[in-house]
Amino acid sequence: MQSSANIRLANGIKRFTTALFRDVLLVAISVIILYPLLYMITISLRPIEEIWDPSVVWISKSLTLDNMIKTIDFMDYWSVLWRSVRLTVVSSLLTVVSCSLAGYGFARFRFKGRELLFMCVLFTIMVPAETIIIPSYTQFWQFDFFGLGYLLYPFLGEPLTANLLNTELTLYIPALFGSGIRAGLFIYLFRQYYRGLPKELEEAASIDGCNAFTTYLRIAVPSSRLTMVTVFLFSSIWYWNDYYFTNMYMNNARTVSSTLAALPSMLNAILNGLSETLQGFDQVQISTMIQSGCLLLIIPPLILFAFCQRYFVQGLELSGLVE
C-alpha cells in the first residue's frame, strides 16, 4: 500500500512539473507574440500627454479614441477599408472556386500528363512573385485576352488589347484562373483532400444520373466545406496583407495594407515640413498614429479568424495532409 501511494505521489509530482514547465513556456512565448499587439492597443488608446508619463506602463489614466479617429481620417480608412474588403473577399472566393476545381480534377481523373501538370502546380509556388511581376505588369498593360485579341488582327490590323492596369481585374483575373496569391498551395490542399474522400458516394451519384460536374457540385463541394473555409481564410489573410501586387497594378487605388505601408513616410514628410496639410505634428503624435494604423490593419483579419477558427484546424485535419 505504502509503495503504491509513493508511486502515485511521484507520478503526481511529475505530472505537475511537466504541466508547470509547459504553462510557463507557453505563457512566455505568448507574451512575446502578443507584445506588439498589446503595445499597439495601449498606445492607440492613450492620450498624447500620457505617452511619456513614467507612471503609465500599460493602462493609461484615461482612454481616448483621438489617435484612432485622427488615423482613420488621415488614412481615409472607411473608403480604403471597403476597397480592401472587396478585393480580398472577391479574390479569395474566386481562388477557392478555381483551386477546388483544379484540385478535384487532379485528384479524381486520370489523364495523360497529370503528374507532370501537378508538378507544374508545385513549380508555380516556388517562383517568387518578383520574378514574373514585370512581364505580368506589361501583360496587363496591353492585355490581349489570353491571345484571343490576336484573332481580330486581320480586321483591326493590330491585336485587340486593353489596358487593365488600375482596375481590380488585375487581381480578379489571376484568382479566377487559379494563379492568385499562393494558389498552388491551395490546389495542393484541395487535391490532398479529394484524394482522401471515399469514391463510393460519387459513384452512387453518377449511377443516379449525375454527370461529372453535378457530382462535383452535389457531393464533393459540400463535403469539402471545411477545407474551403480553411483555404478562404488563408487566402484572405494573404490578399488582405498584400501590398506588392496592389501597388504594382493599381497605383492609385489604396488598400489598407498599401496605405499603412506608406503611412510612416507620409507622416514623416509632414514632420519634416515637406507637406503643409497638417500642422503641429511631432514624432510622438506620428508614432501613436502608426500604432493605430497597425491596429486598424489587423482588426479585420482577427475578426475573420475568430469566426473561422473553429473550422480551420478541423479543415486541415480533413484535408488529408495527414496521410
Binding site: S98, C99, L101, A102, Y104, G105, F106, R108, F109, R110, F111, K112, R114, L117, C120, V121, T124, V127, T131, I132, I134, P135, S136, T138, Q139, F146, G147, I173, P174, L176, F177, G178, S179, A183, I187, A212, Y216
Partner: peptide
C-alpha cells in the same frame, strides 16, 4: 475520363499558360 479531368483543370491550365508560363518566358 481524361476529357472530364482536363475540363476540371482547364481554368487553372489557362491561367498557368497565360499568367505564369508566358510571363516567366518573357522574364
Amino acid at each position: 475520363e481524361a476529357m472530364r479531368g482536363v475540363l476540371f483543370i482547364a481554368p487553372w491550365l489557362i491561367g498557368f499558360i497565360f499568367l505564369f508560363v508566358r510571363p516567366f518566358v518573357t522574364a
